[in-house]
Design a protein around this nucleic acid. Structure first.
Lengths: 245, 245
DNA sequence: TAACATAGTGTTAGTTCTACACTTAACTAT
DNA sequence: ATAGTTAAGTGTAGAACTAACACTATGTTA
């Protein structure tokens, strides 16, 4: 018991990655092989996801599945949406694919979706079997199933999260510069922010703590590093940043 | 097909009701009858919820289950959370109850949760079999399962919703007075708001349209009615009211 | 017609928001 | 060494918004 897959419940993970320049998302390959010839019939991409085990808590399943497919572990995952329309896997391509991988194409699969936001540079994707890697959100390949829809919902959830929990604090690098933080908001909200106004705004936030440390090896004036103070945050979590979408 | 219950997937509905005075929530009775004597062993309360049918879309299932248990139909329901820890129904009372009603107590039941906010006075609860009715949020009876936890999550979701979608517009009575609207915010956020400031704030919102109609039969100066204009709302959905929690 | 109850209205001081341009500090190339 | 390059870092003024505050208006009821 415990290792048998639940036929009706799956988990999908939308892992956003910020590389100080743009937003990316982890996708893995879906290879649809023609059974007889071994020819690749379709080669689209999916979010990392799989069926949970029977009697596995959803949160643990999400962690396990993300690890199995990408090698990422101990990632903060936030549940944001559950898709459960039986029609969602009923198009011919998906039906054929389900048969190929030995799943019952008639099953109604409810998928519980989680998202996270990571620093691409602080994280290493491993477990290359299905070739997981970062794809820029602005330049995505074709997505399988209803994963474009899930990704859309995830983006909305991410924006809301960054609005009411100002920094995406579980999700930030240990230390960061204010320009990097500003860029994060800019790419998530797809906007530009005035540097001085941004700094004034977050100067009010007590839980952003300036370090003495500076950037090194950059060919310009080095920026000061900041850290996020969880203790201070708990005291003042009522302050809501209001970057209008 | 279609009418067989799915053993692993259920839906729970948190229906908030505003009566111009306080927030309420619909609960139904869980009667635990001792099989031999017919004696009532425990009498706690649950959110309206049930298993979905196989091959039933989640959203439709939520609508159906809410109708079956309370008689409410065509209610806007917003999905906010999915609970899926196998331990959630594993305490002795719930296990015994599951046996009594003929369900397999070993099953891992994932529950997809929806909430709504209604005007108590504009809605009639029917289907009295399990005695559904409004209970004041501030004075709740004992809740079965993990329903207190779900209710807590629902309250958070409701507050967020009222923050970024200023009026809970799917959820309002057709016409309302500004005092009623203010009271709604006051009870949801458990705070008091200055009348003049509140009115100034929402006077900016183009999608609140004043009617010529006034209250009738009240023993004081009658208030003007307002309606919510969906068309105007779509134009200006970027304005975010900021009632700090 | 007086008492009651809730509706409805303005001002001021403090805070936040927006728009906008120059100097600084490190490195790089000559 | 020196000039050029790059991004860091900084202030101000006008507009908009927020918070705190008390009285008048309009209907009903006794």
């Amino acid at each position: 018991m415990g290792k048998e897959e639940h036929p009706n419940i799956s988990v999908d993970c939308v892992i956003f990655g910020f590389d100080f320049e743009k937003l990316n998302v982890i996708l893995i390959e879906r290879k649809l092989i023609e059974p007889d010839t071994g020819k690749r019939l379709i080669n689209d991409y999916t979010l990392p996801g799989a069926h949970i085990f029977k009697d596995e808590p959803l949160k643990k399943a999400a962690q396990r599945i993300l690890y199995d497919l990408t090698g990422l572990h101990d990632i903060y995952l936030e549940q944001f949406y559950t898709v459960g329309d039986p029609a969602r896997l009923k198009n011919p391509v998906d039906q054929f694919w389900l048969e190929c991988i030995g799943k019952d194409p008639a099953e109604h699969v409810v998928s519980v979706c989680y998202f996270s936001l990571l620093n691409c540079n602080q994280v290493t994707i491993q477990h290359k079997e299905r070739n997981p890697r970062w794809y820029p959100l602005k330049d995505l390949p074709v997505l399988a199933f209803d994963h474009a829809h899930i990704l859309d919902k995830a983006m909305t959830a991410l924006r809301r999260k960054l609005q009411y929990e100002p920094i995406g604090f579980e999700m930030l690098p240990d230390k960061f510069t204010l320009s990097q933080l500003q860029k994060l908001y800019e790419v998530v909200f797809d906007t530009t922010i005035d540097k001085r106004n941004f700094r004034k705004k977050i100067a009010r936030l007590k839980y952003l703590v300036q370090l003495d440390e500076k950037q090194q090896g950059v060919s310009h004036k080095p920026a000061r590093y900041y850290i996020f103070s969880n203790e201070e945050y708990k005291k003042t979590r009522n302050n809501i940043l209001n970057f209008t979408i």
